[in-house]
Design a protein around this nucleic acid. Structure first.
Lengths: 156, 156
DNA sequence: AATTTATAGTTAAACACATGAATAGTTAAA
DNA sequence: TTTAACTATTCATGTGTTTAACTATAAATT
């Protein structure tokens, strides 16, 4: 990989993420922050879920999740429910209000995504998706390595 | 754009960004946060720069930049210098220590990027870069529209 | 020239998110 | 039964954000 291309990738990556995040923020309900929205998204994707799962998925400590969940629970967006078998465990679910709020954001983000992809040819969209699927897996592996202290190596 | 592909793109996007940010964080010096690093990156890319420029680039209010700059200045990472012609203006530059710190992060991130791209074929990397260049421009336009309150439309 | 308006940056209060350390309560293992 | 492990929470502290009020300076108006 030549140095210039590498620089270009890094530069573009930071720029695109910065702008994409700013744009996504405009599509999220005013009642939710980006992180709160991400938590709702995760709960929806995984059905019933716990603080520990969220902490692991978001790469933060459990106390950070407790804080977010407290705010969401105060606003009646998510509900807590103890597991009957293991009373240490607390399950998190969306309330009806939370569902409504999430649906609204979800539609806005879909519309944004549709609008953005409409600028690209079909095979560009496919290429993007393929790369992201691959990247997702590679990142999982890298994160695993990073937690074990393995250095970045060039794959051969 | 069919609904399933759209869902897949959104899902992958959020996942990849989440993981990438977590991984990048491990490559940034412990003395810097992700946002502080981003500020240093911007200053380096633009040479001399002001709080107003940073606020515009990062889509935040100027007071948010003041707070970040205060912390960086306290740690002797960046320096402030008033413009002699227009004494309202304050230029921000990296100190020698700031340069060293930034170089260090920069190298780590380069290594990470090299490691990640090594999993991809050359034409995949090219495709990624092309898409990101295009996306960067489209996002600029979208953000401009958003600030004017224009709705998301599907491009034809 | 004096007054008004605009610009660049800062401050302070009030949130949200993050970590680390200490803790409560529950379950599993010795 | 004591010990260890696990789930979640609380609290103190630091960082990033917005809003509103403010200082200082420059530009425009009259």
């Amino acid at each position: 990989m030549d140095e210039q291309t590498l620089s270009a990738i890094i530069e573009r990556y930071f720029n695109v993420v910065k702008k994409a995040e700013a744009l996504i923020k405009t599509e999220i309900s005013e009642e939710l922050t980006k992180d709160q929205h991400a938590v709702l998204r995760f709960i929806k994707a995984n059905g019933q879920c716990t603080s520990s799962q969220l902490a692991k998925a978001f790469f933060v400590k459990k106390s950070a999740i407790t804080a977010i969940v407290n705010r969401l629970a105060e606003k009646n967006i998510i509900a807590r429910q103890r597991d009957a078998n293991d009373r240490r465990v607390v399950y998190l679910t969306l309330t009806d209000y939370g569902e409504k709020l999430y649906q609204h954001c979800s539609e806005n983000i879909r519309t944004l995504a549709a609008s953005l992809t409409s600028y690209f040819k079909q095979d560009e969209v496919k290429a993007f998706l393929n790369i992201y699927e691959k990247l997702d897996q590679i990142l999982d592996q890298k994160i695993n390595d990073a937690l074990k202290g393995v250095k970045n190596e060039v794959h051969t």
